[in-house]
Design a protein around this nucleic acid. Structure first.
Lengths: 243, 243
DNA sequence: CCCGGGCTTTGGTCCGACCACATGTCCTGT
DNA sequence: ACAGGACATGTGGTCGGACCAAAGCCCGGG
């Protein structure tokens, strides 16, 4: 089998900086909560300019492993954090907009991830999460709720359940995937003929889902959430088509 | 319900630049393949310094929607691309190293994603992909294959099937999740007592999986791949524990 | 016609300076 | 002694200018 060659072009210094910082993370020398030295100190230590260092830090920031704050005091400077959700959300949103993924792809991924989430939630969800979800359902059921607010509450509902499943990774993925189609779903809901009826039907499924989870019937919840998602996505118009 | 407040701090100009570029992507004005104006032109147009613009471009680059090349000619400059895999892989790798996700989370996510991939592959996979996968299995079956190479081939095997499932998103996610535990799996394999036996057992499952896909028996393939993954992850030692 | 060297364009890097802001510090007035 | 405010300090954020390296383009010489 022919060996796969790939370009080396590792000349860019900010990538080298990035690599050394990543290595310290992999080695466990940098943990969440740790602070990096100030840019003006770290740059000469690494032998690079402040600009190059800053670009590396910016990369880490967009990945969600670093935040930076100016000023003085214990919270200032660059700190290692764990915030993958925003980063993953932006990534998927942009790539979905660029057509890297078709609507069909997103639908199937949502089904797979949420089936798993609901099944796990039926086993592990804490009562307070379910209560919060119930509150969201109650609010979605009020007659004066608008399309935009409904979409927002629906997102939070699904993300909340994913979070209560006890699996941080599938929770993050679920959230990001749901976010990536949020504008599409919003547009579809806005074009609904009979909005109150649609909202009522969707929310009835929400209530039933929550009920199933409360009773620990994960399998049925998984089936219902699949139906729920497929039904909603069926009304969406695809702006993209997979390459 | 209390309204959720969140800090505004939108002062950083590179984020504003990022926002305007993202808007053009969402509006469809920037598509894959398009080229951005040179930095020295674009920066004054946007009313920012070149540094701030560059940091925004760096963000887009780490998300995998932009590549930049110096020089002259049709391939030079900053171009919009669609390459989410590397970005997502780096993101998950770092966050796994930071302990954002436990090994259990990754295991469950792998199971869910790959079950779906194999089921879909049994329906959609092209013959050439299966032939390539067969070649990988053949190579993994040779007695002289080392641990590192086996790990590499195994990764490519699973990623190849995910790619042949016809779903770009689950393929990307599968690949990224598999990559995030690559070093862990490598270490586990290195500590195996009877390496040839382990390799043989794992590869027998690979061969059987491929056979099932060729025969279109997706459900059985899904079950077997779940067993395959759970078996392997059972030998891993967790360096992280979910927070 | 070919070919080779210089030119232009482009991103990559570096340096020095300044800005905004939050905090610490110290001085002063009561 | 205490409180309040003015000042110093440290941090990331921004800016402008300069130079470097590489990849194509162009033109002149053979």
């Amino acid at each position: 089998m022919p060996v796969e060659w790939q370009p080396v072009r590792q000349s860019r210094t900010h990538e080298l900086v990035l690599q050394t910082i990543e290595e310290r993370v992999f080695a466990g020398e940098l943990k969440a909560g740790d602070r990096l030295p100030p840019e003006r100190e770290l740059a000469p230590v690494l032998g690079v300019s402040r600009s190059a260092l800053r670009e590396a830090l910016r990369v880490l920031e967009t990945i969600g492993v670093l935040v930076a704050q100016p000023g003085r005091g214990p919270d200032s400077g660059a700190r290692i954090v764990r915030n993958p959700d925003d980063a993953l959300g932006r990534l998927l949103r942009l790539h979905f907009a660029l057509g890297s993924y078709s609507l069909h792809d997103v639908l199937e991924a949502r089904v797979v991830l949420e089936r798993s989430s609901w099944e796990a939630a039926a086993r592990h969800a804490r009562a307070e999460d379910l209560d919060a979800a119930g509150e969201l359902v109650r609010r979605m059921g009020e007659p004066d709720v608008g399309v935009a607010e409904f979409n927002d509450l629906d997102t939070r509902f699904h993300v909340l359940i994913a979070g209560s499943s006890g699996n941080a990774l599938t929770s993050t993925l679920t959230s990001a995937v749901r976010e990536s189609v949020r504008p599409l779903i919003l547009r579809a809901l806005e074009e609904t003929d009979d909005w109150p009826a649609t909202a009522g039907a969707l929310n009835a499924q929400h209530a039933r889902l929550l009920e199933l989870v409360r009773e620990g019937r994960g399998g049925e919840a998984a089936d219902l959430v699949e139906e729920h998602i497929r039904g909603l996505h069926g009304t969406l118009v695809d702006g993209n088509d997979a390459p």
